[in-house]
Computed example of a mutant assay.
Amino acid sequence: MDPDRSALDAALGDCDGYLVDADGADSTQRYLSGFDAPDPFVTCYTPDGVHLLVSGLEYGRARTDARADTVSRLSAYDYRDRVSEVGPVAGRAAVVADFLADRDVASVTVPARFPLGTADGLREAGVTVRVDDDDAVTRIRAVKTDAELDHVRRAQRANERAMATAESLIESATVVDGVLHRDGDPLTSEAVRRAIERTLLDEGCALDETIVACGADAADPHERGSGPLRADEPIVVDIFPRDKETRYHADMTRTFLRGEPDPRLREWFALTDEARRAALDAVEPGVTGEAVHDAACEVYEAADVPTLRTDPSTETGFIHSTGHGVGLDVHELPRIAPDGDELEPGNVITIEPGLYDPQVGGVRIEDLVVVTADGAENLTEYPVELIV
């Protein structure tokens, strides 16, 4: 099912179309065109339809795969001759201007990161170019269709199988002088990441990086982790894969420990799980992302644990927001943070409170949730347990 683009019509204002010049890795491009190509191509959305301008190499595939009403070749506008005459940037911009003119598009709204060379060339050709200050497409795609939700669910199931791979390696390791071992060698963050990546590849997913961080490394929320994993210390595993076919992401974090946690770490884990459940209970349509974040903060603050809400300069405790949207990007709208807007049915968000201190390590628990008409559905089926 195609996404509902009616909200984009309103976002156009007095412009004739919405123009994107990017490759298929750009989420706005992918969302509007339904097409994935490694090289930049042009999509123009108008209330009358979606129109693509692609290279001859991509023409046949775009006609078959794209969600487009028309697909045109660069060669139809004498692309090579014009590039030879005035250079690649000006020549391509002139071709895009003619492509727009054929569709009676004299003014366009463009994303904030639209190529400057194309924008300048279009303006020289008399096309009005207005920057989309409200990031309309990103806001529109924050509300997922049923088909998109199915894509996220599929990615999450693959994610959970990868998490099970990581947990199994940690659980089955032997302990030698306080270090986890497997097959006679130390079990490292790198080895666990490789096993996670192999599982995800088998599931049709890819990922750029994964966090497997132990001990003091786990006290930095975005530290990937390195070296041998140790007993009696927390191991934060954060996996955020992308389904290679649909390009939709999943996201999940669990904290594992092989051995015996010290009392403070055990308390931190219990508090973080309580904060997770409090935030989950707060999720429903009309509630702001700020209110959900506040629900997590209140659990920590009641236990006299620092948060950024009570101490903006703290470097320990709860030092990040509670969550973010997930979809074609692993971080997108809505924000579950002090500036978070109202939630709507169809929003897919993470709930991921955590506590951090280099003297203790780190603890983070993350679930993936969809906002429903009357509350929320937790898409995460993986159990929450510290000791393995």
Results as ranks from 00 to 15, higher is better:
residue 206 A to M: 09
residue 127 V to K: 02
residue 177 D to I: 12
residue 262 D to F: 00
residue 187 L to E: 08
residue 377 E to P: 07
residue 281 D to F: 10
residue 33 S to Q: 09
residue 183 D to T: 07
residue 136 A to F: 02
residue 84 S to F: 00
residue 97 A to Q: 04
residue 361 G to T: 07
residue 65 D to Y: 00
residue 358 P to V: 07
residue 373 A to V: 07
residue 110 V to W: 01
residue 247 R to V: 04
residue 10 A to L: 10
residue 166 A to N: 08
residue 320 H to E: 11
residue 89 V to T: 06
residue 48 D to H: 15
residue 149 L to N: 08
residue 359 Q to V: 04
residue 105 V to Y: 11
residue 210 T to G: 01
residue 66 A to Q: 06
residue 242 R to T: 12
residue 241 P to K: 08
residue 386 L to W: 14
residue 39 D to R: 13
residue 298 E to G: 10
residue 92 R to S: 09
residue 321 S to Y: 14
residue 1 M to S: 14
residue 196 I to E: 03
residue 205 C to P: 04
residue 146 D to N: 06
residue 23 D to G: 11
residue 24 G to K: 03
residue 151 H to V: 01
residue 117 G to Q: 06
residue 383 P to T: 04
residue 93 A to T: 01
residue 116 L to K: 12
residue 13 G to A: 05
residue 283 V to Q: 13
residue 65 D to S: 04
residue 12 L to G: 11
residue 296 A to C: 07
residue 309 R to W: 06
residue 276 R to I: 02
residue 159 N to V: 02
residue 4 D to S: 12
residue 318 F to K: 10
residue 146 D to T: 13
residue 216 A to I: 09
residue 155 A to E: 08
residue 175 V to T: 15
residue 62 A to V: 04
residue 9 D to V: 15
residue 239 I to H: 04
residue 86 V to M: 02
residue 120 D to N: 10
residue 346 G to K: 12
residue 222 H to R: 08
residue 266 R to D: 14
residue 284 E to S: 15
